[in-house]
């Protein structure tokens, strides 16, 4: 077609269009990569190339020293919905044998009479994460830490598989008809507190969050207080610490007591 020779460098349209476009690009690049970095004294560029790299978003290592290691230890468990993989065929049996030593506190059927958490039917990912954190030192407890110290990776996975396999027991919950408190259903949006129920059951269950229905009130309350004070710190990205800190003592009581009064929900069994 006759008008396609516009693409030739000899065509005046081509020269003008390409020239103007390139000119604007060069001008704006000069502004963005050289003028602006030098115009910001707090950026402390060490030279032209440094200014250009900084404006281009190249990662700069500002110190040769090794990054500061946090103290105390942090959790190393990464929770994804793909975790854990399908348990090995003998995992549940091995887990049941290992669970003999847990029964004194968590009950022979995974239901506790000692205000320890009920583990029957808990999500495998949650149980695995807590065991791994106890072992690694990210979560500390006078009773649990020594137990977890000797567990192998396989032991922890098998225990998680066994407890996830056990049926959730309905139990005796005479006050289950009381309405859910506001903190469970609405949270406290103005304080940045999401509803408990949006992750832990009642509204929804999210990956990595344990379900709480029927868990002992004393246990849930103690954990919220431990998160609030910073005594417990194995939550990823401070999710639970940020929430617990902003909860009032009344809200902590209400959430703990309401969840304790509920029968475990039978949906979402693995």
């Amino acid at each position: 077609m006759s008008d396609d020779n516009v693409l030739s460098p000899r065509d005046p349209w081509f020269r003008r269009a390409v020239g103007i476009t390139a000119g604007i690009f060069v001008l704006t690049a000069l502004g963005g990569f050289i003028v602006l970095p030098y115009a910001q004294p707090e950026l402390k560029v060490s030279g032209l190339w440094d200014a250009i790299c900084s404006a281009a978003g190249v990662v700069r290592t500002s110190s040769a020293q090794a990054p500061v290691q946090p103290d105390p230890k942090l959790t190393k468990v990464v929770i994804t919905s793909a975790l854990p993989a399908t348990p090995a065929p003998d995992a549940i049996g091995r887990g049941a044998t290992l669970a003999q030593q847990c029964a004194i506190c968590h009950g022979p059927t995974g239901v506790s009479r000692a205000d320890s958490p009920n583990l029957a039917g808990q999500y495998a990912a949650s149980i695995y994460k807590q065991l791994a954190d106890f072992k690694n030192g990210a979560r500390v407890n006078a009773i649990m830490s020594p137990f977890a110290a000797n567990l192998s990776e396989r032991d922890m996975q098998d225990l998680a598989a066994y407890y996830a396999y056990l049926p959730r027991l309905p139990g005796y919950h005479p006050q289950q008809s009381q309405p859910a408190p506001k903190i469970v259903i609405n949270g406290a949006p103005m304080r940045g507190v999401a509803p408990c129920g949006s992750c832990h059951g009642a509204l929804d269950n999210k990956t990595g969050s344990p379900w709480l229905e029927g868990q002992p009130a004393a246990y849930v309350k103690a954990q919220l207080q431990a998160f609030a004070s910073g005594e417990r710190r194995n939550d990823i990205s401070q999710q639970m610490r940020n929430i617990a800190r902003r909860m009032t003592p009344e809200e902590i009581d209400q959430a703990a007591e309401w969840y304790a009064s509920q029968p475990p929900t039978l949906i979402h069994t693995n």
Binding site: I24, F25, L27, T28, A29, G31, G32, F33, L36, P37, I52, S54, A55, A56, G57, V58
Partner: peptide, 11 residues
């Protein structure tokens, strides 16, 4: 990077 944000802003 801030430089690219500036270019996009100008365009």
């Amino acid at each position: 990077g801030a430089g690219f944000k500036f270019i996009h802003s100008a365009f």
